[in-house]
Design a protein around this nucleic acid. Sequence first.
DNA 1: GCGCCGATTTGCT
DNA 2: GCAAATCGGCGCG
Length: 201
Amino acid sequence: MAKYNKFNKLDLNFYLNPNVVEVARELLGKIIVKQEKGKKIMARIVETEAYEGAEDAASHAYQNKRTIRTETMYASGGTAYVYLCYGMHHLFNIVTNQKDIPHAVLIRAIEPLSPLPDNHPKQKRKTGSGPALVTRYLNITREHDATSLLTDAFFIVDDGYQVRNIRESPRIGVAYAGAAALWPYRFFIQDHPHVTPGYNY
DNA sequence: GCGCCGATTTGCT
DNA sequence: GCAAATCGGCGCG
């Protein structure tokens, strides 16, 4: 008899994968679950980007650079890396690979699976259709930086959803990164309505 | 519908 | 001082 596998939490082994590009692709279709103060919010991942640490000029950890901000990238796989972008937006990344190898996957867009709270700020774009809108919907802030994704409060599950049309492209907003700016490290579900506007091709 | 630009912290020169 | 893994408001015509 087949085991009923409907909400299978991703485990440490998933996050320790040494190939961060593969992890970025595999995260498409997975569900982020966050439970805090009695509220549960779920969202399906529809767009990601891989950041390949020391060898990647687009990464905060290029050439193994260490700062207060990026120290979290050197944690073990399965850790959340949340940082402030442009002085006002929180961006959520998932650290991968083993400790001291600063690989991470940026969650660029999600499809909301829970209702919006009454106090959700009104916005122009679709809910979750950009990296800062992902953290706004899920209430992810720097308080979650360096926290584990293997707890019961904040984790990712595979519900068996099969992603049909995966597309790839260069990453967004990293034109300064020389040759790395052209690497096909961005993955998204083709024609999904919550992918970053203007980049669904 | 598009392009310009401001917001506002972090990190490097 | 300036640019950054961004977003939304404004002016244009």
